[in-house]
């Protein structure tokens, strides 16, 4: 990932910053410029909850090149406690024991490193509670 793109996404990747519409209260993650419900352009920043429930998941066995050392691994959709759904890698788990409905919490982890000399990209992942 180019450093500028990684840098732009830091508020979401590090702090789970979402945008709450001041018109109707809808929360967006990542933030949007216009609310798709009420068309308002006014938002306030909210930090998403760091716990939620696993809605669905899959096991990746043929990963992109940056993730080959981690294979096999799980990615899933987790609904956080304010209702926002995020796509996340699920780590520190027994892949055979993952269950839909399982409680998950967010942890700060390395997503990947750009080789031996590039930047290290950090962000959120989910771990079973």
């Amino acid at each position: 990932m180019p450093a500028p793109k990684y840098w732009r996404e830091i508020p979401q990747r590090y702090r789970l910053e979402g945008a709450k519409c001041k018109g109707c209260g809808q929360v967006y993650f990542p933030p949007r410029l216009i609310c798709s419900s009420c068309k308002s352009r006014e938002f306030e920043m909210v930090n998403l909850q760091r716990e939620g429930e696993l809605l669905t998941y899959t096991i990746i066995r043929v990963p992109p090149s940056q993730f080959t050392d981690q294979s096999p691994y799980a990615i899933g959709i987790v609904e956080l406690d304010r209702g926002v759904k995020i796509l996340s890698q699920i780590v520190d788990c027994d892949l055979d024991k993952l269950e839909i409905g399982q409680r998950m919490r967010i942890e700060f982890r390395k997503i990947y490193s750009e080789g031996e000399a590039g930047i290290i990209c950090y962000g959120y992942k989910c771990v079973p509670v």
Binding site: Q70, V91, D92, E107, F108, R109, K110, I120, Y122, K125
Partner: peptide, 16 residues
């Protein structure tokens, strides 16, 4: 540490 953990990730969790 898991492969995706280092001094920075553990510092963040302890600080939270």
């Amino acid at each position: 540490p898991s492969p995706d953990q280092d001094t920075i990730t553990m510092s963040v969790e302890a600080t939270l």
